[in-house]
């Protein structure tokens, strides 16, 4: 069965058949007593429910064709991503959620509209079919980069608390004391992006290009899209994590630029 644009439509029966693959995986889990069959079943059910719901919501948003609806979706996506970062970076100081939200809003808005407005040149500027998926990729990668960079920065600063004390006692500024941790964290945050850029097209066919090929697109039309997407997500990852770390590292320092060790933080005094 073919749909618009040469896409082979997957019907309910085919979807049920795909579920059979997960049943096979679940059977393996039971046979090997891995103890994850229940989680597997719940995760699979969530995938069905969340993606079908996403399809419905996107269909509704596409139908509205309203810039406010698109901007509203972007703000909600950014908010959820900021909350996710706060959960995944437990060593980061209080206030990280707000700063992550701000960093992703700035980076997400800038990169999304540079891509849709200047590179893809969509008309109108808010065309939901382009803006929402591209913003999703930008925010998703930015979220991963920020969470990793924040977690590494603050856990490394805690591990280096003796060194930071020695440096500040020698007259170091907060930046001079924190910079080794920040550099290590930023390198760690950038490496997955660099690896993905290096391996693209050799080790794997990236997701967007694979999706376009499955949708019947010409490979030479799909490749430039994928290149733009990969450059876009690497930029989102790096700029988002840089901005978030630069806006948060000083929160680990109190009045008089004193590094707040675990015992001296308000959140450790309960």
């Amino acid at each position: 069965m073919s749909g618009a644009g040469g896409v082979i439509v997957i019907g309910w029966w085919q979807l049920a058949l795909a579920t059979g693959l997960m049943v096979l995986t679940g059977a393996l889990s039971v046979a090997l007593k891995l103890g994850v069959a229940k989680q597997l079943a719940i995760a699979t059910a969530r995938t069905y429910a969340q993606l079908l719901l996403l399809g419905l919501v996107l269909g509704w948003i596409f139908g509205l064709d309203s810039p406010w609806a698109v901007l509203g979706v972007l703000v909600i996506m950014t908010g959820v991503a900021a909350l996710t970062i706060a959960r995944r970076a437990p060593d980061a100081p209080a206030g990280t959620t707000g700063i992550s939200f701000l960093a992703m809003l700035l980076v997400g808005t800038f990169i999304t509209f540079v891509v849709t407005g200047l590179i893809v040149r969509v008309e109108p500027w808010y065309l939901p079919r382009y803006v929402i998926p591209i913003a999703g990729m930008v925010l998703g990668n930015s979220m991963n980069g920020i969470a990793l960079a924040l977690e590494r920065t603050f856990s490394d600063m805690d591990a280096r608390s003796g060194e930071i004390l020695a440096l500040t006692a020698l007259g170091a500024t907060p930046w001079e004391a924190a910079a080794p941790s920040i550099r290590r964290a930023m390198r760690a945050a950038m490496i997955p992006g660099i690896n993905t850029l290096s391996a693209a097209g050799i080790v794997f066919i990236p997701g967007m290009m694979a999706g376009q090929l499955l949708a019947g697109a010409d490979p030479m039309a799909a490749a430039p899209y994928q290149i733009v997407v990969m450059v876009m997500v690497a930029t989102a990852d790096i700029t988002g994590s840089t901005l978030a770390v630069m806006l948060t590292y000083r929160r680990r320092f109190g009045a008089d630029d004193i590094y707040l060790e675990r015992g001296y933080r308000p959140d450790s005094r309960s």
Binding site: G162, A166, T168, A169, L170, G171
Partner: peptide
């Protein structure tokens, strides 16, 4: 604070 600590120098117990 930096100028103060450069003049009033603390050597912590644990050498780092």
């Amino acid at each position: 604070p930096q100028a103060w600590r450069a003049a009033v120098a603390l050597l912590p117990q644990k050498p780092t």
